[in-house]
C-alpha cells in the first residue's frame, strides 16, 4: 500500500530543523551514569537495611517508669530536625564508605586505625632432639667410605647440607625475633624435609 501524501511527508521531514547536541553532552551522560552506578550499591544497601518496630508495650512501660508518669512532648520541629540530622549523617557516612571502597574518593591522607580480635594460635612442631647427632653420625659414616667422600656428588650434597643447616638456623633466629606463625612453621617443616632428603641421599652412599 502506498502512502498518498508521500511527497508532502518527505518534504515535511526534510524541513524539520536539525539539532546538534552540545559537545559535552555525552561525557556528562557518562558521568551521570558513573555516579548512578557508584551509588547503586548504596541505594541497594539502604533498601536492604532492616527495619525494627519496638514492642507495642514499650511506650507504656517507659511512661510508667517516669516519675510523674507523663511523657514530655517534644517540639515537633526539633524532633524532626534531629531525626533528619541522624539520618543524613548515617547516609553520608555510608556514602563516604562506598565512595571510598569504589576507589573514587581514596584518601590521599594517611589514615591509621587500630582493631582488636581474638584468634586461635598454633604451636609448631618440635625438631627431633637427636637430629644433629644423627646427621653427624651419617656424615661420619660416609667419611669412612673414602671413594664416596671425595666423589663430586657427595661434595655437592655436603655443601647443600651445610647450606640448609645454616639456613635453618637463620630461619629459627628470625622466628625467635618476630614469632613463628603458621606459615613459618610450614616453611620450617619443608626445610627439615629438604635437609632430611639430603641426609638420606648421603646415607645411601654408606
Amino acid at each position: 500500500m502506498k502512502e498518498k501524501n508521500r511527497i508532502k511527508l518527505k518534504k515535511g521531514l526534510q524541513g524539520l530543523p536539525e539539532y546538534s547536541p552540545p559537545d559535552k553532552v555525552w561525557s556528562e551522560i557518562n558521568e551521570q551514569l558513573d555516579i548512578q552506578q557508584n551509588d547503586a550499591p548504596l541505594h541497594k544497601a539502604i533498601a536492604e537495611l532492616p527495619a525494627y518496630d519496638p514492642p507495642s508495650t514499650l511506650w507504656d512501660s517507659i511512661e510508667a517508669e517516669l516519675p510523674n508518669g507523663k511523657v514530655r512532648q517534644l517540639n515537633p520541629t526539633r524532633a524532626n530536625y534531629s531525626k533528619w540530622l541522624v539520618a543524613a549523617s548515617i547516609a553520608m557516612l555510608m556514602g563516604a564508605g562506598f565512595w571510598f571502597m569504589n576507589g573514587n574518593g581514596f584518601s590521599s591522607k594517611e589514615i591509621v586505625s587500630f582493631s582488636y580480635d581474638t584468634q586461635a594460635a598454633f604451636e609448631g612442631e618440635r625438631e627431633e632432639d637427636n637430629a644433629d647427632e644423627m646427621i653427624a653420625m651419617v656424615v661420619g659414616e660416609v667419611q669412612q667410605v673414602q671413594h664416596q667422600w671425595e666423589a663430586p656428588e657427595t661434595v655437592a650434597l655436603k655443601s647443600s647440607l651445610d647450606k640448609i643447616r645454616s639456613s635453618i638456623k637463620e630461619f629459627k633466629v628470625a622466628g625467635e625475633k618476630l614469632g613463628m606463625n603458621q606459615s613459618m612453621h610450614k616453611q620450617l617443616t619443608d626445610m627439615y624435609n629438604k635437609r632430611n632428603k639430603i641426609v638420606r641421599a648421603l646415607a645411601a652412599k654408606i
Binding site: S107, S108, V112, S113, F114, Y116, D117, Q119, A120
Partner: peptide, 14 residues
Amino acid sequence: QKTVEVVTKSIQKS
C-alpha cells in the same frame, strides 16, 4: 591450639 589476642594497626593511603 590456644587463644591469642590480635592487635592490628591499619594504615591506608592512596
